[in-house]
Design a binder for these strands. Sequence first.
DNA 1: TTAAACTTTCAGTAATTATTGAAACTTTAA
DNA 2: TTAAAGTTTCAATAATTACTGAAAGTTTAA
Lengths: 181, 181
Amino acid sequence: MNLSPKIENFVLHCGEMGSRWGFNRTIGQMVGLLVINEQPLTANEIADALKISRGNVSMGIKELQSWQLVRVHHIPGDRKEYYSPNGSIWDLANRVFEERRKREIDPTLTLLRDQILDSANSPEEVYAQQQMQTIHDLLETVTKWSAELQRLSPEQLQSLMKLGSSVSKVIDLKDKLLRKS
Amino acid sequence: MNLSPKIENFVLHCGEMGSRWGFNRTIGQMVGLLVINEQPLTANEIADALKISRGNVSMGIKELQSWQLVRVHHIPGDRKEYYSPNGSIWDLANRVFEERRKREIDPTLTLLRDQILDSANSPEEVYAQQQMQTIHDLLETVTKWSAELQRLSPEQLQSLMKLGSSVSKVIDLKDKLLRKS
DNA sequence: TTAAACTTTCAGTAATTATTGAAACTTTAA
DNA sequence: TTAAAGTTTCAATAATTACTGAAAGTTTAA
């Protein structure tokens, strides 16, 4: 398969960004390719388009499935597996966000909880525990907040996103209402 | 310098998480060490505590300064430089967040803007451009939203964070108000 | 000035991470 | 069954990224 320069450009960019988004170059390219192509692709087509080995594609698909970013299609009378993005762009972004939260925040929260339970036995440890408590509280807030966002309907999210610069107005509003009651 | 087991544990954990947070193991450990120690540390103390070379510390400090995560102190009559976290835990988290946005989102927004201006010249490119537009809009929303959050005062942020499960109520409220006016 | 105290740089090397491709495995149709 | 069409695995190797330590650079006090 031959990609048009414009599409190739996009795919290569996804590769360069791959490691910043939490995967590696090849997997970044695979996501880009699948998202930019209307038709699902076979593993061989992917290997061919990206000029990488068949085995590498297999491992990449596996990884993308662990992120829940791809789904498999079957065409009657055809034994090959066809891959496409699993959901809308918005769905994919949400999953990446969620998965990264699990990898980047959850392990630290677990460690901090353990450490905080343990009692300090030197002045340095007292300070250390204060700091750990602060970090813990921050991460917990972020975690709860992101779980909250995940629970909102897409429409509510849109609504929230569109608030833009009026966020502070809404907060003020809420404060006023709470003060009354 | 000898770290107590509890503190060492935390520092090693920061190292393991380092690459997930956007830097590398050593730099993760350095952040952990600086945050957990009440007193600012010299480069030699850091090298000694983490058992890494002096050169490595120098490079790490440079990197952390580019993230604006450390600040330098001087003690009268002492030629050494003393390093400490640059601001509160909250400040540090904000800067990491902001810096990552710059690295993970901005380059893609730039690319997408360019690509979208260019006209499509095949059915595949028409679809590709639609997808790119969708991604662009999503990323732009996220960018604006995060800029908005950065602009809020710490108190407003606290207030917003504490909303928790009442986020949807506030949105509903706002919708109702808008409908009236 | 100079030399002591400190910091930075960077070439060479070590450690880590990603990729290939051949062999093993699985599924299906005849 | 069997063999063709496909997929997965994984040891070997390539590519990338991080680290060391010696040399060069900088600053300060005498």
